[in-house]
Each structure stands twice: as structure tokens, then as C-alpha cells.
Design a protein around this nucleic acid. Structure first.
Lengths: 160, 160
DNA sequence: GTCGCTGCAAAGTCTTTGCAGAGAG
DNA sequence: CTCTCTGCAAAGACTTTGCAGCGAC
């Protein structure tokens, strides 16, 4: 009986699974597995951040200086991955989109406007309510983001 | 004793207040009150939808055919209004931003990544949980924003 | 009158597309 | 071999900027 890997720190195995799924997906759609596509997936996987196509492209150039991977290919691959629900894109205030692997654990953000510290949190109750709301409206939720802005405990003490 | 206007359908009075605030804001910053600026504010006010700059521009051309108001002025005025917190912008799946008057009651957004439609909602339960979370952490909440991304009912039907 | 505002068009960004050669299957 | 993928550069879409004349104050 195979072991089910649940340890989040053991990224290698998680990535292998991701890669296999990706290859399968490509095969299903008669698409080719290229080094550029693998590198884009791997780089997204290795990054803990939400990346813009441009940032992703630069990161790839830095990590794999010998590989040619044009920005157009990054855009094309991200579209492909997004269509396949492997990655999710989010639009932010400024311009452009940011991408993240869809498989990662979800969390929301608490942002201190004084010191800029960001705390992550997950609240089951809120998650449940979100599902209840979207189910009610027949809306298929793909992702969500929530930011709470305020002043953290430390900064409140500092101000007083 | 003056009446407090709470009726959302009585838009006229609400708009007059908004306009006064806007004029005051302009004066404070030594900016000029122009017909274009008024028309942009009024059109945003009259629209119940979240508008793209382009859509706002077209709406203005349709409603005020004799007024010249270039797209550049729409962009410039929207930036001004956003900096002044009179309007709020939302980024969504496709490209570009949509704007809404910021003076409205607090609400969160449900954003369709297919068609870009934005639905507003408020959920008391979520609001309560947010307070519970921040109180727990000794965090003083100032503001928050929540967006749920997904595919609306219409687009799901379209895709299938 | 002064100085900011406007429309226009040109210039910037960010993203997509066309094409010919490279490469996976 | 075939047919897709890639890099490049050109084209698109959306937004901002420069400038000369216009208009609010």
C-alpha cells in the first residue's frame, strides 16, 4: 500500500505528482512536454509568492541562465495552466495579473498599516460562509482573497 | 430638527451632498471644478454598475452628446477621484479596472472571471467573524476587502 | 490675467499573435 | 517525419503623457 504524503515540507514528492498530472494533461490534449513548460511549472512551484508573468520570466532567467524562455512562452504557458486549472490568476490594484499554483493551501491576510507586517490566517467559519454564499447564487468559486487592514497589537502599544 | 435621509431611492439629495463634498475637495487642493469633472461624477453616480473607464466614456457620450469629454479626461478624473477616496477601483480577471462610488455602504465583491461581472454582497456572519479574529489577536481593524473569484451562473451555462 | 484643465495624438505598458525554424513524439 | 512549440518582433489593447489652446477663478 503506497504512502500518502501529507508533509508539506517534503516538497519534492508533491512536485513529482504535480508534474505527472501536468504530463498527463498534456498527453490528453495532444500537447508536447517541453523544457520551457516544465521550468515554468517548477519555478511557480518553488516560489511561495504570487508572481507576475514578468517576475516569473526574470526568475527563470536567473535560475536557468542557459535556458531560452521568452516572455511570450511564459504568457502562453500561464494561459494553458490557467485554462487547465493548474494555476489561478488574481488581479491586483495596479496593473496585470499574478499567478499562483492552485494547489497550495488557502489563507487570508491581516495587514498592519503601521509596520506593514502581514499575518496569515484561515477561518473555517468564514470559508463555510463563502461557500454558502456562492452556492446560493450558483456561482462556482475558484478562489478568493481577503485582506483585513488595521493596526497590530505591537503598534497599538507603541502609539500609546 | 433636520431629517436624516436614509432612503436609497431618493438619490437627488444624496447626489447634492456628494457634489458639495467634491467641490470642497477641489477647492482644498486648488483644483478647478469643470463641467467634465461634474459629468463624470454624476454619470458614475447614476450608474448602478461598476464601470470601466471606456464604458463610462461611452455612457457620457451617449447621455451628453454635445459635451466633449475625451477618454484621457475620464482616466485623469478617475485617478483623481480614486486618490481622494471618492471612488474605489476593482481589478478583475480580464484586463483593466472597474470603478464604483466609494461612498456606498460596505460590501464585498463576487467577481466572474469569465465575463467580468461583479456582484456585491454583505454577509453579517463573515463581518462578525472578522471582528472575532481581530479581537482575538488584539488587532485593531480599520478596513477590509474581500473578493471571491469564480464563474457566474450564466457563464457556467455558456461554457457547457 | 493666471494657471490648471481639456482634447488630441503620440508614447508607454502589458499581453497576444504571426512566422519560420527547432524539437518532441 | 509530422505537427506543435518557441523566440523574436510586430501588432493589439489599455492607459498615460506632452502640448497648445481653452476656461474657471
Amino acid at each position: 500500500m503506497p504512502n500518502v504524503i501529507t508533509n508539506f515540507n517534503d516538497k519534492t514528492i508533491e512536485y513529482e505528482q504535480l508534474l505527472q498530472n501536468f504530463k498527463l494533461l498534456l498527453k490528453k490534449n495532444k500537447l508536447k512536454f517541453t523544457i520551457q513548460r516544465e521550468v515554468i511549472l517548477k519555478t511557480l512551484y518553488d516560489s511561495d509568492e504570487h508572481l507576475t508573468p514578468e517576475a516569473l520570466h526574470q526568475l527563470i532567467q536567473k535560475k536557468y541562465p542557459d535556458l531560452k524562455a521568452g516572455i511570450a512562452t511564459v504568457y502562453r504557458t500561464l494561459s494553458l495552466l490557467e485554462d487547465s486549472n493548474v494555476v489561478t490568476s488574481l488581479s491586483f490594484g495596479a496593473q496585470g495579473k499574478k499567478y499562483e499554483l492552485g494547489a497550495k493551501e488557502h489563507h487570508d491576510h491581516l495587514i498592519c498599516t503601521e509596520c506593514g507586517e502581514i499575518t496569515e490566517f484561515v477561518d473555517e467559519e468564514i470559508e463555510k460562509r463563502q461557500h454558502a454564499i456562492t452556492d446560493d447564487l450558483g456561482f462556482k468559486m475558484l478562489d478568493h482573497s481577503m485582506q483585513i487592514y488595521g493596526i497590530c497589537k505591537k503598534c497599538q502599544a507603541k502609539i500609546k
